[in-house]
Amino acid sequence: MTAPPLLKVDKLSLDFRTREGRVKALQDVSFHIDRGEILGIVGESGSGKSVSAFAIMGLLESTAEIGGGSVHFAGADLLADNGAAMRAMRGREISMIFQSPRTALNPIRKVGRQIEDVLRRHGPVTGHEAKKKAIEALERVRIPDSARRYDAYPFELSGGMCQRVMIAMALACRPMLLIADEPTTGLDVTTQAVVMDLIREMVDETRMGALLITHDLGLAGEYCDRIAVMHAGHTVEDAPTEVLLEKAAHPYSARLIAATPAAADEIADLGSIPGGLPDLRRQDLPYCRFRDRCDRRVEVCDAQPLPVTELTGSHLVRCWRPT
């Protein structure tokens, strides 16, 4: 048996209480991340990618209610209700970066100071040390002229530069796990590559684990070791990247791959996926939430809960009729 994974999310279910009823945002979501590995989570908008990340971080709003399952990180139970321990862990052992880095940084505080805030929070450092370490953190993400950039405000930096600052901040305390929620959305293609190369390098160098959330399967295919596909609050497939791209077993994954420009030869070949996500507020959500969009639907899909099948060593699929 190998060592337990760095992060293990097991059968996590989560509802939001809203005025219009309960939103069943996650149901039996499972995935894991090892050290030195990037796991990609892909899926269309509203499939529960961010909610999964927030659940790991303990950053859910008070209307969220965890119905079951567990999240273990380096042996610790993250769902055990321990606010102080969780806060101490955030930013030090698990960090997160977000989409739209410009608004994710405090607009009226020097970026260097913002990194210092994190350093000071997680360790006793003197003012001088903190500044030195903050500049080092900026250097580590290859920000040129980092001593001067320390004094910059977010509005003085480009979007890509801001995302690098975000990464520097997230990595300042050398965490074991980095969660990146659509870190390159809104950046141009070149900057996107720079940011992703940086994350890949950090992972290879420090052996930390990373969770890359994206709706761009092409991007995930390029940078991730394994990919988990989410659909309407379910993890429908989980496989090593090459396996998934070549032998996707779930009809939704197969359609996603077909809809990704890199895989299609011509724009005209781009298959779009008919239908939308089911309304997660419905009381009578079907066992298979992809049912209405699926062309392989058979009777058993409506009648019984979905089985999770292990196709090969680490290729999991949740479907009655995987291919």
Binding site: R90, T103, D117
Partner: peptide, 14 residues
């Protein structure tokens, strides 16, 4: 409710 406060929380700031 802003993004940067979410970042601050994600970084564990007090």
């Amino acid at each position: 409710g802003s993004d940067f406060v979410r970042t601050a929380r994600a970084n564990g700031l007090s």
